[in-house]
Structures are given as structure tokens and as C-alpha cells.
């Protein structure tokens, strides 16, 4: 009897935490998709919250000075870390994705300040949604240039 109020209290906290986690997950889950998957299921995922990673094509970066709208194209890279390693590391995978013509691509629209790291062969990690026009509207744009953080030994850095 004496313990029951503590047990009830504990269960109440547990229920509250489960509710908080479940409802917040529901409200803010983002689907992580590769560009290849996006291209395959384009019509079904319109409007859904997505998180996409791709290699930035430097030539396509365009910037509208009046609205601060940035548009660029990203090329498909695999989302699988092991596969990236097997293919020679992130830097090389990004480099190849940009160079090869056949990789699926996606046009991105982003409204915001120009990030320092938005450059050719950067890895763009974006959240946003695909609209009916087939463009990806990114709300958030994270960029990673693997070569800037740790590089291969000197003799391998070229190529």
C-alpha cells in the first residue's frame, strides 16, 4: 500500500515520457532517402518531410541576388557507409558522383545565406520536401567537405 503511490507516480512519469517521445517523433520524423529512391518514388512522396544527402555539382550553383534564393543540383551518393568506404571513401565517392553523367540528380531550391561550404563536390545534407514541380525545397542545408577535415597522405591527395 505504502509503495503503491510511488508505483503509480512512476507509471505516470513513464507514460508521460512515452507520450512525449511518440508524439514528437510522429510530428517531426524525416525520411532519409537517397536521390535514386527519390527519383523512383517521386509521385508518392510529394510533400513528405525528407532528409536527403547528395554531392553538389559546382557548375549548377546559381544564386538570385534579389531574393537570396540558391538553386543547385545534387548527384546521387549512396547512404551506406560501408559502401562509401568500399568505394574509396567519401571524398572519392563525391568526386565520382559529380563526374559521372549517369547518376540520378535532383534540383534543389534553398532560401538562406550562402553557406561557406557550398562548393563543388561537397556533401549536402538537406531537409525539406519535394513539391509537385519535382524540385526539392530545402529548409535546412548542412554541408560537409570531407577533404577539409582529414585528408589522405600527401602523395594520394591528388586524384
Amino acid at each position: 500500500m505504502k509503495n503503491s503511490k510511488f508505483i503509480i507516480g512512476g507509471l505516470f512519469i513513464l507514460a508521460a515520457v512515452v507520450y512525449l517521445i511518440a508524439s514528437s517523433t510522429q510530428a517531426s520524423a524525416e525520411y532519409f532517402m537517397t536521390i535514386e529512391e527519390v527519383r523512383e518514388q517521386e509521385s508518392e512522396i510529394v510533400g513528405k518531410s525528407l532528409r536527403i544527402s547528395g554531392a553538389v555539382l559546382g557548375d549548377t550553383i546559381d544564386y538570385d541576388p534579389d531574393t537570396l534564393t540558391i538553386t543547385f543540383t545534387v548527384a546521387h551518393v549512396t547512404g551506406d557507409n560501408d559502401e562509401i568506404e568500399a568505394n574509396g571513401g567519401l571524398a572519392l565517392v563525391l568526386y565520382n558522383a559529380v563526374r559521372e553523367e549517369g547518376t540520378p540528380r535532383l534540383d534543389v531550391v534553398y532560401n538562406g545565406p550562402m553557406p561557406d561550404l557550398l562548393q563543388n563536390e561537397a556533401q549536402a545534407i538537406m531537409t525539406g520536401y519535394i513539391d509537385a514541380d519535382g524540385l526539392f525545397y530545402a529548409d535546412e542545408l548542412l554541408l560537409k567537405c570531407p577533404t577539409k577535415y582529414e585528408e589522405a597522405v600527401p602523395d594520394q591527395s591528388e586524384g
Partner: peptide, 10 residues
């Protein structure tokens, strides 16, 4: 399917 949660979740 790979799903992730961002700052709004936390």
C-alpha cells in the same frame, strides 16, 4: 526505411 528526427523533435 531510414527515418531521422531533427531539432523540433528534441
Amino acid at each position: 526505411s531510414k527515418v531521422t528526427v531533427g531539432p523540433p523533435f528534441y
